[in-house]
Design a protein around this nucleic acid. Structure first.
Lengths: 247, 247
DNA sequence: AAGTGGTCTAGACCACTAA
DNA sequence: TAGTGGTCTAGACCACTTG
């Protein structure tokens, strides 16, 4: 599924509600219907298109959910002014990412430690009660060069079977995905100067600029894992695309 | 609108299709229905809930659009394994961002140059034909410290009125938003070592790690602007949250 | 060939809210 | 209070696809 897919300007949408949606979307995008403009009532559109109100409602509901219009009872539906700068950020699997560069991928486990969670661990995971955690550090290679350094904490209360996995062959990311149905994730993206350990792992000078992606994952309000990916500057870029709405 | 809003585990959804959606979502999240599991047919669910098939269809269509299930004609609907790591990245207005830090905000225009587009400009904007562009550099302050350096290119063919605006008072970002209905945006997030010019602008040492956010914006397939925001490491983090689906 | 989902209809009742 | 959108019904036909 391509998240960048737009609704408007499609060739010829098969279904009627898609065509209605595209028509209105086009008029908003072109500026013909400026922000604040009241678009026709449902019953007017259903008369115009010669269809039932439900069909129109389906199109308008989608436009409202996409944030293009705002619907007010008794008043009508109005074109919203673009406001929240939100973008859909695609975060790929590292193996896929490396493959996209046309380089051979290799994974290497650096360390694996099981312990009772420290206050620091609980902070990282957003964990309240104490319990056992697994800390893994590993490296992802693109060709001969280290591409990414990974430092991961796994909450063993949420994923007990991780205690029996060596992670010598399987990278923890793909291993966790599919095993744990996750309900929420939070990403934090920053730049830092490389610390001694990561600088050594990435084969760069200490203090060199790095891109850091941290991810926390929950499954049904239960913290599952926290991971910190560090990339040397220049080796990696995150790309996010945004279109105001999708079909 | 809160994009982090989840569908499942809500108190008591008012409408029936929302309740059906939440019920199924919960069973998938809890692992009761594992990936690959075939969920009940529409006619079975409509019998179970004592409602029409359209109501069930509304719930299942949303689950499919959210990527939780996959629907196949003649076969049924199946739980999908989570796959694409996508996140919704909220990119705030810088003024709002600084206000959130509890610091006073100040904007300062550094330079303003109008010129015929160079090949380099066209590369940045994704422009094919030549034409006039406006290059702006400015700084955003949080308190006394420079917070962000902005380097922006505006396609004057798309926004001719920008030629008459001094941008001494108004930051170009907010000025453009609301004036131009935009249809797509692309973000690129990287880390770099500060170059001489940006290091001076941000009052940091040359080579210090910085977070760079580049944004390209289109309006109906027409390039509008390219902007490069540079933040000193530590002064800024991008946060993205993801929940697999929304109501 | 049969059964699934995709779409659509022509109504209906209700909650909300602006006039 | 009148009119909007929100929701739902009990059907229907069709396209697709698999057994």
């Amino acid at each position: 599924m391509d998240v960048t897919e737009a609704i408007s300007a499609d060739a010829e949408p098969a279904s009627l509600h898609q065509r209605i949606l595209a028509d209105i979307s086009d008029r908003i995008m072109s500026g013909e219907w400026a922000p604040g403009h009241r678009i026709p009532f449902e019953h007017e559109l259903s008369a115009e298109y010669g269809c039932s109100r439900m069909t129109v409602n389906k199109a308008l509901s989608q436009l409202a959910k996409a944030g293009l219009i705002e619907r007010r009872r008794r008043s009508g539906s109005f074109v919203r002014r673009p406001q929240s700068q939100a973008a859909i950020l695609e975060i790929h699997d590292i193996k896929t990412e490396v493959a996209a560069l046309g380089l051979p991928y290799r994974y290497e486990l650096t360390s694996r430690r099981k312990r009772k969670s420290t206050p620091d661990d609980r902070e990282r995971l957003g964990l309240k009660n104490s319990g056992a955690v697994l800390e893994l550090t590993c490296r992802h290679f693109a060709g001969a060069q280290p591409f990414c350094h990974e430092d991961r904490l796994v909450n063993l209360a949420a994923v007990p079977e991780a205690a029996d996995e060596s992670f010598e062959e399987n990278a923890p990311g793909p291993w966790l995905i599919g095993r744990i149905p996750w309900s929420a994730a939070e990403h934090r993206i920053t730049a830092v100067g490389a610390e001694a350990e990561t600088a050594a792992a990435l084969n760069i000078a200490e203090g060199s600029p790095c891109l850091v992606v941290e991810r926390r994952t929950w499954s049904a309000d239960h913290p599952v894992t926290h991971v910190r990916f560090t990339y040397a500057a220049g080796s990696h870029a995150l790309v996010a695309r945004f279109t105001p709405s999708q079909s």
